[in-house]
Simulated scan of single mutants.
Amino acid sequence: MAIDIDRALALTLPGFTVDVERGRLRLFARVIGETDPIFTDVDAARAAGHRDLPVPPTFLFSLTLESAAPFASFDALDIDLRRVLHGEQRFDYTAMAYAGDTIAISERIVDVTVKRGGALELLTKQTEFRCGTELLATATNVAVVRNPEVAA
């Protein structure tokens, strides 16, 4: 079934907050192979001019999975996850986030592009990450959705 573009662009996803914990940052750094001590040792982070452990690049994406319904946009648009492929992810950073911060996350669909005569639809979601009123980063994610009703 084709994505209802008007419905997608009007979709309001519930925002939520996540507390950034030191232990989680240390685990993330270890998992990605980060060896710089500023990401695991508070004293090293402070000596480098940070107020606490800084959030490593791409960590913010993992916070989106803390939503009560991390795939709510697909559910709301009746998109079968078996027909979804991750197409693209981009982060635009404007400020640092640190352990101890409470991050407010808001997501919205900003574009739907139809390709290959309707066989593929590109669903673009934008996610904002804020600490208080300060914008920390904007993530743009493109999901490729195969429409089973149209032959490629």
Rank of each mutant, 00 (worst) to 15 (best):
A47S: 09
I32F: 06
D41V: 10
I38P: 00
V31N: 12
G23Q: 13
I38M: 02
L27V: 02
A48M: 09
L25Y: 00
D36I: 00
G23T: 10
D43Q: 13
R22C: 12
P37T: 14
V42N: 00
D36K: 04
A29I: 05
R22E: 15
V20G: 03
A44T: 00
D36M: 07
V31S: 14
V20T: 07
D41C: 11
A29N: 03
E21S: 14
A29W: 02
D36W: 03
D19L: 15
A48Q: 11
T35L: 12
F16Q: 04
D19A: 15
F39K: 06
R46T: 08
A29E: 01
I32S: 13
R22L: 11
G15I: 05
G33P: 05
A29V: 03
F16A: 09
V18K: 14
T35D: 11
F28S: 00
R26A: 10
F16W: 10
D41P: 13
I32R: 04
E34C: 04
R30A: 15
A45W: 12
G15W: 05
L25N: 01
V18L: 08
T17M: 11
A45D: 13
P37L: 11
P37F: 10
D36P: 07
G33H: 07
A44S: 09
R26N: 09
R30W: 10
G33C: 05
G15A: 14
D19N: 14
R30Y: 10
I32M: 08
L25M: 02
E34D: 05
V31R: 03
D36N: 15
F39Q: 09
E21G: 12
D36E: 09
L25K: 01
R30P: 06
I32N: 08
A47N: 07
V20H: 07
F28P: 00
D41W: 12
V31M: 14
D43P: 02
G33Q: 07
A45Y: 13
A45G: 11
F39N: 08
R24N: 12
A47V: 02
D43A: 15
T35G: 07
V31F: 07
F28M: 02
I32Q: 09
V20D: 11
G23V: 06
I38A: 02
L25I: 03
V18Q: 13
